[in-house]
């Protein structure tokens, strides 16, 4: 069997193996050396940093965790960094989730960032997790008219209306900033369509989403979306910017996105290589047929 024939009928498991090597190698390298590829931040990431930075101290931020453990590999680093900047800026963070496991993701992020690095912040006063609420867009419509009706209790079982952090909050319009980290439906697109558009400009939104969703979100940027973090690349840019602003030697958890850029680099290079090889096979096959 010729090489061309072999390549034409290549078992896809060889491709799977190549991808495994392309991803695993850089993960090991990055883990052993602690090195990460350098990042050049784009305008979208800079805007995210600026929007949060421009908020006055004590402003309330609504942080929607619309993802689950399946996409945490791609989204958790940006959620971590976003919460870190909000906490460092002394903003009051109200976490909610429209995905059943989003409440758990919020809890984990609070544990990793706030409880670990900002222990002076008090639950119910400076931050709160209101957990998951079923109803998708229905919940978004409710928060436009009555916020505590949609989220009546926090995850500890305390009435939302009694929490100091929510005093004076009637609707979602009372939050100057909405931060959404989303892996699909319901997510950033729905928040833009149902809340940002309906709030007539009173709610600013920044979104962090998966790579697959990013092209879908660009039509809303920089209009309805004040900032956009697209996939792990966006997260790495933002993480890099934030680490620069915060100074010092960042803990490994604040380098997660940049660490993931090494396997992404080699994964993309493999894809380019595979596409080139696939086209060569086609080209040579055509020539062979003509001959």
């Amino acid at each position: 069997m010729s090489l061309l024939a072999r390549l034409q009928s290549l078992d896809r498991r060889w491709i799977f193996l190549l991808m495994a090597i392309a991803v695993a190698g850089p993960i090991l390298w990055s883990g052993l050396t602690g090195k990460t590829p350098p990042e050049q931040p784009t305008d979208a990431a800079r805007r995210v940093l600026k929007v949060i930075d421009d908020l006055p101290e004590g402003s309330r931020v609504l942080f929607a965790f619309d993802y689950d453990p399946a996409s945490a590999g791609e989204l958790q680093p940006m959620a971590t960094s976003l919460m870190r900047q909000c906490a460092a800026r002394k903003l009051r963070i109200v976490c909610i989730a429209l995905w059943p496991l989003g409440g758990n993701m919020a809890q984990e992020t609070i544990a990793h960032v706030i409880r670990a690095d900002f222990p002076s912040l008090r639950e119910g006063v400076d931050f709160v997790n209101l957990g998951f609420q079923a109803g998708n867009e229905g919940v978004m419509k409710v928060v436009l008219t009555d916020f505590t009706k949609a989220f009546p209790k926090d995850t500890r079982g305390q009435a939302a209306a009694d929490l100091p952090i929510l005093q004076g909050v009637r609707t979602v319009r009372d939050f100057p900033l909405l931060v959404n980290v989303s892996a699909g439906y319901p997510g950033s697109k729905e928040w833009v369509q149902y809340v940002v558009s309906a709030s007539e400009g009173s709610v600013k939104m920044i979104a962090g989403c998966t790579g697959v969703q990013t092209p879908q979100m660009y039509p809303y940027y920089p209009g309805q979306l004040a900032g956009l973090l697209g996939a792990i690349k966006g997260a790495a840019e933002y993480e890099n910017l934030l680490n620069g602003v915060m100074g010092g030697d960042p803990a490994p958890k604040y380098l997660e996105a940049q660490r993931r850029m090494a396997p992404q680099l080699f994964g993309h290079l493999l894809l380019v290589g595979l596409i080139v090889v696939g086209n060569l096979i086609q080209f040579m096959g055509r020539r062979g047929t003509r001959a």
Binding site: R12, M19, S71, G73, V277, G278
Partner: peptide, 28 residues
Amino acid sequence: AMVPLTSTMFALLAFYVASAAFRAFRAK
């Protein structure tokens, strides 16, 4: 159980993207 299982399924996408790119991305 749930977290590693769902993460594993999501990670499969990298492999499927590679095989789809190899097979379907042709300059026809």
